[in-house]
């Protein structure tokens, strides 16, 4: 019998997903859980946002007000 994954385990997988590939079974259970859980869906979005933070920090740094933004080097 398929046992429903709980939020705590789901957050573990949504974190691990950002660092290493999940197994097919893990992907499936995470997907099923996210389809039914709003709180975990938000958590997943936030982990993804935190995962982008390094890249965004670089953009933010390059975009200091006094240099007119980094974009003019393009």
């Amino acid at each position: 019998m398929f046992k429903m994954m709980m939020c705590k385990e789901a957050t573990r997988l949504m974190s691990k997903r950002l660092d290493a590939p999940l197994s097919f079974q893990e992907k499936l259970s995470l997907k099923l859980h996210l389809a039914m859980c709003d709180a975990c869906t938000e958590c997943n979005k936030q982990f993804t946002l935190l995962h982008e933070v390094g890249h965004r920090f670089e953009v933010f740094v390059s975009d200091t007000p006094d240099n007119g933004g980094g974009a003019h080097n393009e």
Partner: peptide
């Protein structure tokens, strides 16, 4: 620290449930 966020059964504690942060682009 992690256990405090969840109930015994593995669901979120009511007060620890993640809420929407709105548009992530706007946040950045």
């Amino acid at each position: 620290a992690i256990d405090r966020l969840f109930q015994q059964n593995g669901r979120w504690q009511e007060e620890a449930k993640p809420a929407s942060w709105g548009d992530p682009e706007a946040a950045f």
